[in-house]
Write a protein that binds this DNA or RNA. Structure first.
Lengths: 116, 116
DNA sequence: CATAATACATGGCGTGGCAAGGTATGTCAA
DNA sequence: TTGACATACCTTGCCACGCCATGTATTATG
C-alpha cells in the first residue's frame, strides 16, 4: 500500500469521481471501491473521504440524497452532476498528461498502446 | 502546464532527485531542468524548490557545497548521497506503482512496453 | 544607467490527508 | 441477552508543503 499522503492528494478526486461514475454510491461503499479497484494499493481513510465528498458536493460536482437500505441503514447516496462529469473529464486529462510527464522524467516504462 | 499544486506534491521529490542525478546541480539550474525536462508541463517555483532542497539536504539525501561560477556568481551545488540514491530508487518504484494503479482506475492507456 | 537575468532565501496563507474520537444501528455467536 | 463486530456517518486538531510575495546581491545588456 502506498503510504505517502502526498501522492493521494493529486489523485483522490479523480479516483473518487470515477468510481462514483462507475456506480459506487455512498461513502462506505466508495471507500471499499477505492480499495478494491486499486487492489489494496490505495486507501481512502474515512477522515479523508468524507470531507472530500463534502467538498465535491459544495463545489457542485456531486449531489447527495439520504436513503435507507433494505436492512434499515441510513446512507447518503452521491451522484455526479453535469458539471461533475465535465470536471472528471478534465481531471482525467490533467492526470494523464501529468503522469505521462513524470513517468518520462523518471525513466519509467513508456505510456503507450500495449502490443496486440 | 499543470496548475494543480496537489499533483506536484507527490512528484516533486522524485523529479528533483532524478534531475540532480542526471547532472543538474544548483537551484536555479534545477528549476530550469524541471521546466525543460517536462516540456513546460511542470514548474518548480522558487518558493517551492529551495525549501524542498533544504529538506532533502536536512534528511541526508543531498549534500551541498558553495562554489563560484566562472562569471563570478555564487551557487549552491547539490549532489546525491548514497542514501539519496537509495531514496530516489524507492520513490521511483513507489511512483511507478501508484501511477499505474491510478491510470488503470481512470481507464487511461496501459503502461507497458511500446511496440517496436 | 536602467533593466533584465541570474541566484539565493524566507514568511504567511490556504489546502487537505491523517489520526483520533464520537454517534448510531444491524447482525450473529456464545 | 450480551458482547463483539461490521456498517455508516461525522468532526476536530495537527502538520506538511506548494504558492505568492518579498527581499537581497551580483552580473549582463542595451
Amino acid at each position: 500500500m502506498t503510504q505517502n499522503p502526498d501522492l493521494l492528494r493529486g489523485a483522490l478526486e479523480p479516483v473518487v469521481l470515477e468510481l462514483i461514475a462507475a456506480g459506487a454510491s455512498y461513502g462506505y461503499e466508495i471507500a471499499r471501491a477505492v480499495e478494491e479497484a486499486s487492489g489494496g494499493e490505495l486507501l481512502a481513510q474515512e477522515g479523508t473521504l468524507y470531507p472530500a465528498l463534502h467538498r465535491l458536493e459544495k463545489r457542485g460536482y456531486l449531489r447527495a440524497a439520504w436513503k435507507t437500505s433494505p436492512e434499515g441503514r441510513k446512507r447518503k447516496h452521491y451522484h455526479l452532476t453535469g458539471a461533475g462529469r465535465r470536471y472528471l473529464e478534465n481531471l482525467r486529462t490533467e492526470w494523464a498528461a501529468f503522469s505521462r510527464t513524470v513517468n518520462r522524467i523518471l525513466g519509467i516504462a513508456h505510456v503507450g498502446i500495449v502490443c496486440p
